[in-house]
Structures are given as C-alpha cells and as structure tokens.
C-alpha cells in the first residue's frame, strides 16, 4: 500500500455534482470551502474533473435528465472512489418525492457510501460525512487514518 494510499487519505480531492437540487446544499458545500469551515485543513480540494477525483459529493434528487450524467461521471472516476449523498432529497427524494420528473435518491443510480441528512445539510455535518467516508476508505485499503 504505502504512500499512495496514505496520501489519498491525507488529501482527498472531491468533486461536487448538483443533480437537480434546490441549491441549499450546494451553497453549504461551497461554504465548507470558505474561511469559517475551511475544509482544506483536511487536505480536501474541490476539483472540476472526474478523473482527478477521489470523492464524489452529490446533492439533490436524481431527475430523469441528470441520471445519465451522474452515471457517466461516476464511471469516469478512478477506483477506489467514495460517493457522499448530501441532503435529504439526495437520500430519498425528500420534499420532491411526488414531483413527476424526479426518480428519487442518488442510490437509485449509483452506489452511495455515506448519507448526510439535513435540509439543507449543515456544513458541520458535511465535514463529518467526508471524514466518515475517509474512515471507510482507510478500512477498505487496510491503512490507518
């Protein structure tokens, strides 16, 4: 294992994808990157490119048009990868459960590792969720966090 596995845990790169969320969770994910919450102190950097990414952060319910885009992005990320579903609607569809264009939670399309509830999920909860994902990744790789 060695240095690659350790480095992945010490500086995971995340990519944020907005399915069809209301923006509430998106701005909280962004707020995590700004001075008050400063997720960068865990080495976490926000990336725009799926091939550079270790952790995929998904917000919002899957709708009929983004389902394909989400699957496509997930397939492009190199293993080992983690998926975090942020917000109640990305878990189950939440408040949008009876909207005709909504398929439901993110796990209808791709496997999810960590679910972060909340509407909108608080930055503290998001940071906690990312750390949980890292613990899972550490276990998977057989190294200590």
């Amino acid at each position: 294992m060695g240095i690659i596995a350790t480095s992945r845990l010490k500086s995971p790169w995340i990519m944020h994808f907005d399915n069809s969320s209301c923006n509430g969770c998106d701005i909280e994910v962004l707020a995590c990157l700004t001075p008050l919450y400063d997720i960068e102190r865990f080495g976490i950097v926000n990336m725009g490119n799926p091939k550079h990414t270790d952790v995929l952060v998904v917000t919002g319910p899957v709708n009929r048009r983004t389902a394909r885009v989400l699957k496509n992005l997930y397939d492009q990320i190199a293993d080992p990868k983690m998926v975090i579903a942020v917000g109640t609607c990305s878990i189950s569809g939440g408040v949008f459960h009876n909207c005709y264009n909504v398929l439901g939670g993110v796990d209808k399309v791709i496997p999810v590792d960590v679910y972060i509830p909340g509407c909108a999920a608080r930055p503290e909860a998001i940071i906690d969720g990312v750390v949980m994902a890292l613990q899972k990744l550490a276990k998977l790789q057989g190294v200590a966090l």
Binding site: S21, G24, D26, I27, N63, V95, F96, C99, Y100
Partner: peptide, 26 residues
C-alpha cells in the same frame, strides 16, 4: 434541474406547499 414542482403543488395541501416552494431555490 426540472423536477415538476408546479404539479406537485397541485397535489399537496396548502401548508405543505410552503416547504416545497421554499425549495424551488435554496
């Protein structure tokens, strides 16, 4: 980002729509 909120507002009761309308945009 199309979900179909206008239709869902016809299916929900009045007080519930507040929560749905708030989530048109966060």
């Amino acid at each position: 980002g199309h979900r179909g909120i206008e239709k869902a507002c016809e299916l929900n009761e009045y007080p519930k729509n507040i929560y749905l309308c708030e989530r048109i945009c966060g």
